[in-house]
Design a protein around this nucleic acid. Structure first.
Lengths: 234, 234
DNA sequence: CGCACAATTCTTGTCGACAAAAAGAATGCA
DNA sequence: TGCATTCTTTTTGTCGACAAGAATTGTGCG
């Protein structure tokens, strides 16, 4: 229960309140610090952040609109569940998003985009080497969002943000089970993606992105079926 | 200025306030009753709906998250502008969305989905025959959202909602210029889509959806270039 | 007459308080 | 003891009020 009062910022700028709460809550939800289904109490959050319920409420409304918390009318709001039953729909969407954003990036990127993407890739490799799963997942999301932004289509970048956000929760479960060795080959796949984008090789980028997505989907599916076997064995 | 006080519902259920404001404002924005760029005053809305600023604010936050209003911190919030310069990105996204949702609908639909879709199609034809552009646009959005729902992938249905929402504003501009004759062939195209879905003809549905989207994009682009020519001619 | 600075107004962000729902506890009856 | 009903408590939705920025007006000086 992470409810230490965070008395770090007794003074804050006007209008920043909701954003602070939103950012922190979002991160805690996506990192599974707040487990799915756990209830969210507004007054408790108010005490924790040292502010009134109003900005808390605004943050919760935004999280609800984003699908990260679900709120029953006149009843408690809680952290949204992960829909394991329809997980394949998630990977369908992810694969298509990877393909289209990488294609567009290969077409429309500018030099500054590449430096941004390469910087994130460096961070990513560092996180993998440091075996920091949490950082790795967050940077992975930032990496693909940067690619989406290089594609210059705000509808697809919006979709990327959404999918990669939820992806952070799903991948977290995955890496938690493999807490010994983070797979280095994902770094290489990212590297190939960058090369294809830099070469403006649209078809190659598409192919790599598709393979990348399918590989991740397969890994996660393998994990889930294995977990299913374990459950049955017990 | 549509600010008559709407004293229709002096009593309302608890928790419904924000939804009422959200639904009505969203509709007014998408129907261009509220023109892009026009400022939104919270207290004025409060008087209009007969409620405090708090539920108004919640509705505005949700609209902002959806991209329908843009809000400068500590300054006025206003109806979001339509980004005409990057209109092609919209149609790129629309085409891909049409294709994938129609494909999935052909694969995954159930009988009840088809009755729903056919009902909307009947309404659509009625609106076209009645030359009711506003209803036609709204029903068109509902029609494609129903197809997306039949595809059973909530990420794509979410994207559809978003794109078709903005589409209502763009198409409104289009039909406003052609207020003499609403094109009947769009009804036929919808009919073909339904047939392909019912036949579970995935490739056919894909092809039709792609053609449908490209046709709309071309029409709108033609309108815009023509408007551009007129502007230059003046 | 023009420009910079100060005062005022206006709008938004935040707060504390109150009331309605719902959940939970307690009581009464069979 | 079990169940239904009432009462209490908890939590949310709404309200009115206040204060901080920003925009606007007003003023004085060059």
């Amino acid at each position: 229960m992470p409810d230490e009062p965070v008395a770090s910022l007794p003074e804050r700028k006007r209008g920043a309140g909701a954003k602070i709460v939103y950012d922190l809550l979002r991160d805690e939800i996506l990192n599974l610090t707040l487990s799915p289904g756990s209830p969210i109490d507004e007054v408790q959050l108010g005490e924790r952040f040292g502010m009134s319920r109003t900005p808390i409420r605004e943050a919760l409304v935004r999280l609800a609109e984003e699908g990260l918390v679900s709120t029953l009318p006149n009843r408690s709001t809680m952290v949204a569940q992960i829909d394991f039953l329809n997980l394949h729909t998630y990977f369908d969407a992810l694969a298509l998003m990877y393909r289209v954003t990488t294609r567009l990036a290969a077409q429309n990127h500018r030099p500054s985009d590449l430096t941004e993407i390469r910087a994130l890739q460096a961070e990513y490799a560092r996180a993998v080497q440091a075996q920091d799963a949490l950082a790795m997942i967050a940077i992975n999301a930032a990496f693909h969002i940067a690619i989406a932004e290089a594609g210059r289509n705000r509808y697809f970048t919006g979709l990327s943000r959404r999918l990669l956000g939820e992806g952070r929760r799903i991948l977290r479960l995955y890496y938690d089970s493999y807490d010994d060795q983070l797979p280095m080959h994902l770094v290489d796949e990212h590297e190939e993606l960058i090369l294809a984008i830099a070469d403006r090789d649209v078809e190659g980028a598409d192919r790599l992105a598709k393979a990348h997505a399918e590989q991740i989907a397969m890994q996660v599916q393998r994990l889930l079926t294995r977990r299913g076997d374990l459950d049955i064995a017990l």
